[in-house]
Simulated assay, not measured.
Amino acid sequence: MAIKDDYIKIRVSKEQKALFKDIAKKKKISMSEFMIVATEERALREKEKFEGTKSLELRVSELEQKLQEIKLKMERSKADKKKFFKNFFLLMFTN
């Protein structure tokens, strides 16, 4: 277990304090331990969301880039086909 050598001071309403104290008592742990565990769990969930979103944004960006590359290849292919058929018809009908 990590050494607890720092503290965070927060202000809460009387109702919030009563709620936290009641839940901690029912769980048979100190109010501090309840607050630490609850806050850490929430922070880890938020961290997962943030990192997941960041990863998703990166994947979307990579996908967009690949789609642009495919689009360019398709446009080049279409242009090459038009050029081919134009040359083909010119050869066929100019002789």
Rank of each mutant, 00 (worst) to 15 (best):
I3E: 14
E69S: 11
K82R: 13
K14S: 13
F20R: 04
F89N: 15
K54Y: 03
E41N: 13
M92N: 05
F85V: 07
D80F: 05
I3H: 10
I29W: 02
L90T: 09
A2I: 11
E41F: 09
N87K: 12
R45C: 03
K82N: 15
K28D: 10
T53E: 09
A43V: 07
E33Y: 03
S30C: 06
E51C: 02
E62P: 00
E46T: 01
T53D: 07
K54G: 08
K21G: 00
M74T: 09
E57K: 12
V12C: 14
Q68W: 02
K27C: 07
I10N: 04
V12K: 06
K54Q: 08
K25S: 13
E41G: 00
I3G: 02
E51P: 01
R42P: 00
M74L: 14
E48N: 11
K47T: 02
K73C: 04
E46A: 06
I10W: 05
K83A: 14
A43D: 00
R76V: 06
M31W: 00
S32N: 15
S61Q: 12
L19W: 03
I3R: 13
K17Q: 11
Q68H: 09
E57C: 05
D80H: 10
N95I: 03
K14P: 06
E40D: 03
A24H: 05
Q68S: 11
F93L: 12
Q68G: 04
M31Q: 15
N95L: 10
F93T: 09
E40S: 07
T39W: 00
E64T: 02
F20D: 07
R11I: 11
E40C: 06
K54T: 05
M74R: 12
K54F: 04
K14E: 15
L91R: 13
K9I: 07
L91S: 13
E41C: 03
I3Y: 08
R76C: 01
D22A: 15
S77Y: 08
K86A: 12
L44W: 02
R45I: 06
E57L: 12
E15S: 13
K83C: 08
F85W: 14
M92A: 14
N87E: 15
I70G: 00
E15D: 15
R11M: 11
I3V: 12
Q68P: 00
R11K: 13
I8H: 09
L91M: 11
K25W: 04
T53K: 07
A38D: 01
R45N: 10
D80K: 13
I29E: 10
I70P: 01
F88T: 04
K14C: 03
E40M: 11
A43I: 09
L72C: 04
Q68Y: 09
F50V: 10
K49H: 04
V12P: 02
Q68T: 07
S30D: 05
K26T: 09
I3A: 14
E69P: 01
F88S: 06
A38G: 02
E57V: 06
F20T: 03
K14H: 09
K78L: 13
S55Q: 08
K47I: 05
A43M: 11
I10F: 09
F34Y: 15
T39Y: 01
L56V: 01
L91G: 15
K25G: 01
K82A: 12
F50L: 15
R59F: 01
K49V: 05
K86R: 15
I70M: 08
A38C: 05
R59H: 07
D22F: 11
